[in-house]
């Protein structure tokens, strides 16, 4: 058992995966998690594409694997000071830890959909975000959906992604396929519903994503309309009227819907920024933390003993995050054993 202390900031799937690996390598990592549970965003998710695996499975498995780690829930890092080759990590519960390595795995925040006011989130009851819908899939409880039969629903892609006016130019990677996944799930719940997806373009790069898209059209009859939604208003009967342009046919479209789901993108979880910058980690031009380089050293911060994993350095899928966390665990191990 190594005596080296490793602090992992963030108890999402990145932090948990890294902790699990480090435990197997003989360390006892310390996980600091701001919320009252482990699992991060994935813990709130229902099923994961492309195989519709329940998100709870992976969170559960990881939680079991890290049960031997030191876990601080509902705890925040106040500041970190560097002292030669160690880091003094001060927590808001009064604990201070002298750590030989620190892993930042603080992930992302969901883009605040109220900022795209023209889509009416927070104003019209029929407008939800991808997270709201996913929660409803998991819990079956949302006052905006309870007892409603969905006959017509729409999904708006790229809400706060690739949007200069919203201050985010990056692609959030997962929303295209998430919209398809959620559209299929919704269709399974309401087989008679007509569903539209409004997209700029579909970025279906991952394994089996394209098949997923073809299935959505062939087996579920989901309509895909290439064109951004311009505005959403409330109709006379309380439903929402969505105006968009179908750029393939070159015509404006106007549909009345019972439910509109906004695919909110990922933005950097900025709570870590002051601490990261105090340790010499800059922000990259997309607002996420800057890795040593974006090709071969994504998990390295360029600072001794300081590592990064997961969506804190950019938008990531679940498998990418897990792969990075594994890689970070190995790098930490090599750093601690081979040479500081």
């Amino acid at each position: 058992m190594s005596k080296d202390n490793i602090v992992i900031i963030g108890g999402g799937i990145a932090g948990m995966t890294a902790a699990s690996r480090l435990l197997r390598l003989g360390y006892t990592p310390i996980i600091v998690e701001e919320s009252d549970h482990l699992g991060g965003h994935v813990a709130e998710w229902h099923k994961l594409f492309p195989d519709m695996a329940p998100a709870q499975d992976i969170v559960q498995r990881l939680a079991e694997e890290v049960s031997a780690a030191n876990i601080f829930l509902s705890t925040r890092v106040l500041f970190i000071n560097r002292l030669h080759d160690t880091y003094i990590v001060m927590l808001n519960n009064g604990v201070s830890i002298q750590a030989q390595a620190v892993l930042i795995a603080t992930g992302f925040n969901l883009f605040d959909a109220t900022k795209k006011e023209e889509y009416g989130y927070g104003i019209y009851d029929q407008v939800l975000t991808n997270r709201d819908l996913e929660r409803w899939f998991t819990t079956g409880d949302d006052p905006r959906l309870n007892g409603h039969e969905v006959k017509r629903a729409g999904f708006v892609h790229c809400v706060g992604s690739r949007d200069v006016k919203a201050g985010n130019t990056q692609c959030s990677k997962v929303c295209c396929v998430t919209a398809i996944k959620q559209a299929i799930e919704l269709k399974e719940k309401f087989p008679d519903a007509e569903i539209w997806c409004f997209y700029m373009d579909l970025r279906l790069f991952g394994k089996k994503y394209e098949d997923f898209y073809i299935n959505a059209q062939k087996d579920y009859g989901i309509h895909f309309i290439r064109g951004r939604v311009s505005e959403v208003s409330e109709g006379l009967d309380g439903r929402v009227i969505v105006k968009a342009e179908d750029t393939l046919s070159g015509k404006p479209v106007k549909v009345t819907l019972d439910l509109l789901v906004l695919m909110s993108g990922m933005v950097c979880n900025a709570t870590i920024n002051p601490i990261a910058t105090s340790l010499g980690i800059d922000l990259d031009s997309d607002g996420f933390l800057r890795s040593k380089d974006n090709i071969s050293h994504i998990v390295s911060s360029g600072r001794k003993g300081l590592f990064l994993a997961g969506a804190c350095t950019g938008t990531k899928t679940v498998p990418e995050t897990i792969a990075e966390a594994n890689s970070a665990a190995l790098d930490i191990h090599l750093y601690l054993t081979e040479g500081k």
């Binding site: 006011e117 023209e118 104003i123 505005e231 959403v232």
Partner: peptide, 9 residues
């Protein structure tokens, strides 16, 4: 105002 529905509401 169509793009800022909270005002019209």
């Amino acid at each position: 105002t169509q793009l800022t529905p909270r005002i019209s509401k």
